[in-house]
């Protein structure tokens, strides 16, 4: 008997809620029998936070007494952004105290590079970056200009959302090093959300 009464109460409540609910809906948004109703949908999108990790030092070694004189190792660039970003290479410049300046890679043919004499070897080098994983891309730094900070993109490595890419230094250089040298360079990069 008590159970039966409870069921009736619940049923009545449900029925009233349906009637009341539909009454509210019909009062706020009249339904056009031909076109249906329109409902405003309001959303908010926060600005994306760009989070990218990459090394500040890209190392290489030149051993002119080896068949393959140039050695570099891959560096990992991590895009922790949940959106695609472009890693733009602006340029590479020599740090103070390094006399071997960055020149255009096309300033010599490969044969000419390997035939450079002592003076040219110790004063010129072409540096760039290449992708190790993914689509093969090589970006050569433009020639450095004293006192000028590189600001124009020389090439781009696209980074997928929440992914990593391996890049490494490439170089063109002479082999006539009369003394051992420590060469220090600064790499200028820019990260931006991918256009398009």
């Amino acid at each position: 008997m008590r159970t039966s009464f409870s069921k009736k109460i619940v049923s009545a409540a449900l029925l009233m809620s349906l009637v009341f609910g539909s009454a509210v809906a019909s009062a706020d948004q009249p339904i056009d029998p031909d076109n249906g109703s329109t409902v405003d949908v309001v959303g908010t999108a926060s600005a994306t936070t760009i989070v990218v990790t990459m090394p500040t030092v890209l190392s290489f070694a030149i051993n002119p007494n080896n068949v393959k004189p140039f050695t570099s190792v891959p560096a990992t660039v991590v895009n922790s952004t949940y959106a695609p970003v472009d890693l733009q290479i602006l340029g590479i410049t020599s740090a103070s105290g390094t006399d071997t300046k960055v020149v255009d890679a096309a300033s010599h043919t490969d044969q000419e590079w390997s035939a450079l004499g002592r003076s040219a070897t110790t004063s010129q080098i072409a540096l760039g970056l290449e992708s190790v994983s993914g689509t093969p891309i090589t970006v050569w730094s433009p020639a450095e200009i004293e006192g000028v900070t590189p600001s124009v993109s020389a090439g781009t490595f696209p980074l997928e959302p929440n992914s990593s890419e391996e890049i490494q230094v490439v170089a063109k250089h002479g082999n006539a090093w009369d003394v051992a040298k420590t060469l220090n360079y600064k790499l200028y990069v820019r990260v931006a959300l991918t256009e398009g």
Binding site: T53, S59, V73, L193
Partner: peptide
């Protein structure tokens, strides 16, 4: 290669900027 890798890995830097 090991020496170069160590130098590079020790220099990792993260930028965090609101776009």
């Amino acid at each position: 290669r090991d020496y170069l890798k160590q130098k590079q890995d020790a220099s990792m830097f993260t930028v965090t900027v609101n776009s």
